[in-house]
Amino acid sequence: MPRVSLRSLFIAVAVIMAGFQLVAVTLAALPPNRYSDAAAPRTSYLAPYFTQNWRLFAPSPVAEDREVWFQGTYTAADGSVKTTAWVDWTAVELDLVQHRLVGGRAGYVTSKLYGPLGQAYRGLGTAERETADETPQDSPPRWAQLRADLLAGGASPGRVSTFLLYEQATARLATDVLLSRWPDRELTAVRYRLRSAPVVPYESRSGTAAERAASRPEATERDSGWRRPTPGTAAERRTVASFDRRHR
């Protein structure tokens, strides 16, 4: 009976595939261990669509506020070089989240990218970090020049590329944001500041607002070197400016 054989075939295929999938997902979903690592080549078919995030509900949550600020240098009408005020871009983004049950995802982009930005920087050697930090304010190097300077010290090309990828994206966002705040100023350099402030310690959580604020450990800051202004497309600048106007 062809119908019966079709059914048997379906059952055989379904049982074998379901069994394999069960084992594969189990190995891939559990926290990494030597057995799941050994089976990785055979469970790689799960990526991307069956991949599941085993780190559910913040297993190891961040315990500090993370902020990204931008500042620019411009030439004033009298020819003098001036710097703009610092712009707290994280605060602008957070307007999408605060006091809203249904917030927007654009509300925490900088806080999520804070980590990779710092990691890419720490991936450089001490000498390269100095090179990246001490770029001149009056004439920041072109991106190709900065890459050459970083590689001259013998840094790993892969790490330099990753660092520059994040630096360029940050410089572009900084330029778009600063042009949104001061469209008439001709920017000559931009930089960012990363600021992290540990949250109120658990033991101090019941104090008054002033006591809790006083109990917070001191914030740490890092200012980047000066970078060439890197404006995005006109549409991108308009979008950033519109977002800035609505949420600042």
């Binding site: 654009a106 982009v109 900088t110 990218l113 994040y166 994206a169 778009d176 991108e236 979008t239």
Partner: peptide, 15 residues
Amino acid sequence: SRDVWVGQASIWAQP
């Protein structure tokens, strides 16, 4: 905020 989240101004997501 789709343009900032996933559109032409999702600059930070590019790297």
